Amino acid sequence: MAGNSVAIDDYLKTIYHHTEWQNDPITPSQLAGELSLAPSTVTEMVQKLAAQGLVSHRPYGPVSLTDAGRLRAASIIRRHRLIETWLVREFGYAWDEVHDEAEVLEHTISDRLLAGIDARLGHPRFDPHGDAIPDADGAVDRAPFVLLAAAHIGHSGRVLRVSDRDPALLRALEGHGIDVGHTLVVAGRDAVRVDGGATVELPAGAADAVWLTV
């Protein structure tokens, strides 16, 4: 039963993540790709989630979270991001090292320990990658944003979020001084000025992994 609960959480998290920084709903094929599962397996689970009132879905259409599904997804994401923040602040982990640890711990720590971590950290609103930490009601506070790849040349914005999908890219960006809170000016298709300094060439994939204030 616990294993099934973890699987449900993974589905709900993936659906939640998909629309967190863009508006297009996820399709079953995209969900299968994100989870590295066979489409037939995903179709079966989506039907089960719909029966439980956690997602809405029609045949061949996209998958969306219901209010109940979004609240459950936000709860597990809150755990994950608080743990990531805790590992960085209290244990000296680098921002490229925390994702896999949090994936394990989010399913094992108690609500009491999570509340203690939250209080210890001063109730943070964002994790080390700039992702918003949902509150206990699932609400998030996020500034208007633009993907770096979509920002026009000359745009100046503070780094709101860096995707944690690729640890090597995180390390490369950090080497260029690109981190949450720093200011970038778009100088070209794959070039930026960091905090008013010299222009730097972006690593491959960086423009699709960094979000700026508008």
Rank of each mutant, 00 (worst) to 15 (best):
A74M: 04
A74Y: 01
A74P: 00
S75Y: 05
S75L: 06
I76Y: 03
I77D: 06
I77L: 10
R78Q: 04
R78M: 00
R79T: 02
R79P: 06
R79L: 05
R79F: 01
H80G: 05
H80S: 11
H80R: 13
H80Y: 10
R81V: 00
R81S: 13
L82N: 04
L82P: 03
I83F: 05
T85V: 02
T85Q: 08
T85I: 02
W86K: 10
W86L: 06
L87E: 03
L87G: 01
V88D: 06
V88N: 12
R89V: 05
F91D: 12
F91S: 07
F91W: 12
F91G: 09
G92W: 02
Y93G: 07
Y93W: 11
Y93Q: 13
A94V: 00
W95K: 12
W95F: 08
D96F: 01
D96S: 04
D96T: 10
D96W: 08
D96V: 07
E97M: 13
E97W: 11
V98F: 07
V98N: 03
H99D: 11
D100Q: 11
D100M: 02
D100R: 09
D100Y: 05
E101L: 14
E101F: 12
E101A: 14
A102F: 12
A102W: 08
E103Q: 09
E103I: 05
E103P: 09
V104Y: 13
V104F: 12
L105C: 11
L105A: 14
L105R: 14
E106W: 05
E106K: 15
H107K: 04
H107A: 06
T108D: 08
I109R: 03
R112H: 11
R112L: 13
L113G: 03
L113Q: 07
L114R: 04
L114S: 03
A115S: 14
G116Q: 13
G116L: 06
I117D: 10
D118I: 00
A119W: 03
A119S: 15
R120C: 15
R120P: 10
R120H: 14
R120A: 15
R120V: 13
L121W: 08
L121T: 08
G122Y: 09
H123S: 14
H123K: 15
H123P: 05
H123W: 15
P124E: 13
P124R: 14
P124C: 13
P124G: 11
R125T: 13
R125A: 10
F126P: 00
F126Q: 14
F126K: 14
F126D: 11
G130W: 01
D131E: 07
A132I: 02
P134Q: 05
P134T: 01
D135W: 01
D135A: 02
D135Q: 02
D135C: 05
D135G: 04
A136I: 09
A136H: 08
D137G: 10
D137M: 08
D137L: 12
G138N: 06
G138E: 09
D141Q: 08
D141H: 12
R142W: 11
A143S: 01
P144A: 14
F145N: 00
F145Q: 08
V146C: 11
V146G: 07
V146K: 04
